[in-house]
Structure formats: C-alpha cells, structure tokens
Design a protein around this nucleic acid. Structure first.
Length: 482
RNA sequence: CGGGGUGUAGCGCAGUUUGGUAGCGCAUCUGGUUUGGGACCAGAGGGCCGCGGGUUCAAAUCCUGCCACCCCGACCA
C-alpha cells in the first residue's frame, strides 16, 4: 500500500488549520449539500445533503419502532395560550418564536406560533385522549421541522428552521419515564457510533443548560476537530411539569386521578454538521460508510476503449447485488483526474479505478477516502472484499475520532491551568464542580466555557471545585460549544 | 443585537480611489483530439453590476435607505 499523493489539500477549500469556520463553509458549498434561500437563516437541503438525513432517519426510525414507538403528526401552528401554559417553557422559547398574525387579510383573534418544539400542542391533545392507566404508555414520535428565529445562523449547525424528530411519551411512573429517557439517549449514542462513527460523551445537563421545562435533560456531546463541543441529541425527563400544566389525568390503578410522567427527545439535521466537523479533512468531506449516499464510486479509465465500460458495469452490478450504494461515473466530459478530486471532496469512502491495464491483469485499483491508501484487488471475489473494507473503514474512522477526542480531553484541577488550556488548545476538560449555578455562570462569563454534561461515568478527581474552592459534587465535562 | 468584511455571468474574481460602450479565469454549448491525479485545439452563448431612492448630460463607480451572506463577540438544538 502506497500513499498516493503528498498533497493533503485542494485549492477550492481553505485549510482547516488556517481558518476552521471558513473551511466548514467551503466544504458545505463545494460539496453541494445545501444552498441559501431568500429568507435569512432558512436553507435548502440539496439531494446529496438530504440523502445524509434520510440515512439518519432510516436508522433512528427503525430503532424507534423496535422499541415500541409509533409515528404520528401534530400541527405546525400552536395557539399562544397553549405555549404560555408551562412557565419555564415559554420563558425559554418566547424570545425565538415566529408568529402568525393573519389568516388571509383577516387579523387573527389569537396569534399562532410556529412550533419551536411541540410539547405544548402534543400535551393539549394528550389531555383529551388519556383516560385510564390501561392506555399507558403513550409512545409517539414525529418527524417534522421546527422554527426558532435565530440571530446568527450556520448551515446545519444553527438555522432558523431545522428538520428533526421529536418523541413525546407518557408513563405511569417516574421510574418508567426515567427508563424511557435513558433508553432513547442510548439509541442516539448507538446511532452516533454505529452510523456516524462519532464517539459521544453521555450524561446529564446542568440545571443552567437543561431544556426549558424539564426535570432533567440528558445529552450526548461530541468533540469537533477545532476543539469545540457539539450537543448532538437530547432526551428530557419532563416529570409532571407539563402534564400538570395541561391537566393530563387518568384513572389510576387505585381509582384516583393521576398525572402521568412525560418524556421528550430529539435529534436534528445538526448531526450532519457534526459529521462534517469530526471526520472532514483538507480535501473535503470524509463520510462514514454506513451514512454515505454513495459508498463506492467506480471511475473507468480510457472508457472509450473496447470493453472498459462493460467491465465497469459488471463490477457495479456485482456490488449493487450485495446491497451497496454504488455509482459508476461514465460521464466522459470529465477526466478521471477531475473525478478523483470530485469524489474525494464529496467524501465517498471507496473509489475503484478500472482501466485496460487492470482488466488485462484481472484486478481493480481501490482507494480509501479516509487514509488515501491505494490497493490492487483481485477482480474475482471483489464484492465481499469491498463490503468488508467498508466495515473496516467505519471502525477505523470511529477509532480515529475517539483518539482525536481523547488527545484533546484534559483533566484539570485548577482554574489557571483551565484558562490556559482552553485558550491555547481547546477541547474537553474533565474537572470537579461544586454544582452551584452561580459558579458555572461565572466561569462562562470569564472564559466562554460551559458545562457540557455531568457524565454517567463519574470519576473522583478531587474534593474541591477548582473554580470556587467549595466542596465538589460532580465530575463534569466542560468545553466551548457550538 | 454590537464590531468587522463582502455582494459584478452558474462559480471564483478584477474594475469603484479619479463617473464616460461590462471584463478575466473556470463552468456551459458546437466540432475534433484525448483519458492511470483537476486534458487540449478552434468557435459560440451568457449581465436589472444585491434591491430602492437621490446627485449628474452620464452611475457598477458618488450620496442615502434597505436586504442578504461570511467572520468575531453576547443568546440558543
């Protein structure tokens, strides 16, 4: 195996070490994932980008159904009076909701908000439907878009409208709600690792960072290439906060009216931004094989020569028969060299080159996107070798991402070192914390760093909080966040 | 919402200081030769210069208002 080129960048894309934000924008634009629409903060997701979302949807939807959930659909518009019912919730979301004030030319008696999330409309319906403990649990999910009027937007990471799913469940007991909350977070983590090849830190949000109206919020957090963290999926135990506000009651087992326990959980197109920033390099996207819309691209060489295209089509058919997503690029208006660059930029995991020389030798050339390793493979039995190679690439990408993250994860026990590290080599910081919101606010104000989560896997790193000197309550992961 | 920057052909840009026929590269189209890391030759098409007002004989260029995008901060998936 030989490194095929020393060149580790392309002229169209800013190098990530020079300007990470510009690199991200360049990659998104050059690879045809999205385009900007006429309305600020609203983006068009183009076919290559939407295919990524469809693969995320397919994975999650399968797992939701395997765990007993059903899909349904609730309306886009929510009356203001419903939004206002849960106090913390409305305070959290009011600043960024869009309002519908007119129907045609008539001004509405009550204005309607475009959902920023659907707890309120869904709870108002659950209140009508729920009668008996025999009806529980409610295990519903919807795939939809929501609108949050953002001031600063970036494709995938923060847009005024985004696609997501939101699950909303009701349970008889707090224990069942908690079990559901953690189960769904676990599915997000499984998806991140098995599909996106992104290792996650899972844990609970601090009270300052939790969802508006939640008893507890759980999160998976990933570390990007630039050392900033991305919240990648959240699952909330809402306890009885909304069910009481919306007066959702049922006849319980002991013949008294009870309020059910409530959860909600969501993951969005933001995950795509995470994939770009965790795996991408200076040549563009590097897509994990199970997510990639095109897993293998076949580039014929000297395709007008007799037999070349037919041979390439045979390879295409064999790989497709194995269920792989394959593209044969037989467009003769682009040279092979152009195609090499194009599909590398688009992150296609494996490129197969086949020309007259290879046909004669009974081989093909296969090149890995993630490592640039080039190998000559026997044509005979190629399908199973390629299928296995895709799995190897997935494992290697996950491992590489884990190694990158671990190298940028620092254990720190004093504030001065913390400041230095976060200023010079940002990443995750593992440290003890007193549990006091004022202390958390102070650190954020002074350094811009926030508590990403209180991880499930706790370590006793010390006895005092390095920020205020009070007794430590938890070990936390901290980082600057997207 | 504050600070900085940018809007000219599908994409990337020059031209704006000093007002005077709208330019370049890539892409596109036609024909031909090519094809193992961004091919070559010849020809062709493509523009409300972000949008609106103003100054002027004349505006991409000067004045003014707005809009969008990018970057850096404050707020959030």
């Amino acid at each position: 195996m030989a490194r095929e080129s020393d060149k580790d960048f392309v002229k169209d894309i800013t190098r990530m070490e020079d300007d990470f934000a510009q690199w991200y924008t360049d990659v998104i634009k050059k690879t045809d994932l999205v385009d900007y629409s006429p309305v600020k903060g609203f983006m068009v997701i183009k076919p290559y980008g939407y295919a990524l979302w469809e693969n995320i949807q397919a994975f999650l939807d399968r797992r939701f159904k395997e765990t007993g959930h059903q899909n349904c659909y609730f309306p886009l518009l929510i009356p203001e009076s419903l939004l206002n019912k849960e106090k913390e919730h409305v305070e959290g979301f009011a600043p960024e909701v869009a309002w519908v004030t007119h129907g045609g030319s008539e001004e509405l008696a009550e204005r309607l908000c475009v959902r920023p999330t659907s707890e309120t409309i869904i709870c108002s319906m659950y209140a009508k439907w729920l009668n008996s403990y025999r009806d529980l649990p409610y295990l519903y999910n919807q795939w939809c878009s929501v609108v949050r009027w953002e001031k600063a937007t970036r494709p995938f990471l923060r847009t005024s409208e985004f696609l997501w799913q939101e699950g909303h469940t009701l349970h008889e007991t707090m224990e069942q709600a908690q079990e559901e909350t953690l189960q769904m977070l676990g599915i997000y983590q499984e998806m991140a690792e098995d599909l996106l090849a992104i290792p996650m830190v899972a844990g609970r949000k601090s009270d300052r960072e939790k969802f508006a109206g939640a008893e507890a919020t759980y999160t998976i957090e990933a570390l990007m290439h630039d050392g900033k963290a991305l919240q990648s999926g959240t699952s909330h135990n809402l306890a009885q906060h909304f069910t009481k506000a919306f007066d959702i009651t049922y006849q319980g087992r002991n013949n008294v009216l009870e309020y059910p326990y409530h959860t909600s959980w969501g993951a969005s197109t933001r995950l795509i931004g995470g994939v770009i920033m965790v795996h991408g390099d200076n040549r563009g996207l590097v897509l994990p094989p199970r997510l990639a819309p095109i897993q293998v691209v076949i580039v014929p060489i000297a395709q007008k020569k007799a037999g070349v295209l037919e041979h390439a089509r045979g390879i295409e058919a064999e790989l497709k028969a194995l269920g792989l997503r394959v593209k044969l690029d037989d467009d003769d208006s682009n040279s092979p060299g152009w195609k090499f660059n194009e599909y590398e930029m688009k992150g296609v995991p494996i490129r197969i080159e086949v020309g007259p020389r290879d046909i004669e030798n009974g081989v093909v050339i296969a090149v890995r996107r993630d490592t640039h390793e080039k190998a000559s493979l026997e044509r005979e039995g190629l399908g199973s070798v390629i299928a296995a190679l895709l799995d190897t690439i997935h494992g290697d990408m996950l491992e590489r991402a884990r190694k990158n993250r671990d190298e940028k994860t620092y254990t720190i026990d004093n504030y001065e070192t913390f400041k230095t590290v976060m200023a010079e080599t940002p990443g995750f910081v593992k440290t003890m914390w007193c549990g006091d919101m004022a202390c958390e606010e102070k650190v954020k104000a002074e350094t811009g760093v926030t508590i990403r989560c209180i991880p499930f896997e706790q370590e006793q790193l010390g006895d005092t909080c390095p920020f205020c000197g009070k007794p430590a309550k938890h070990m936390v992961y901290m980082a600057k966040a997207y």
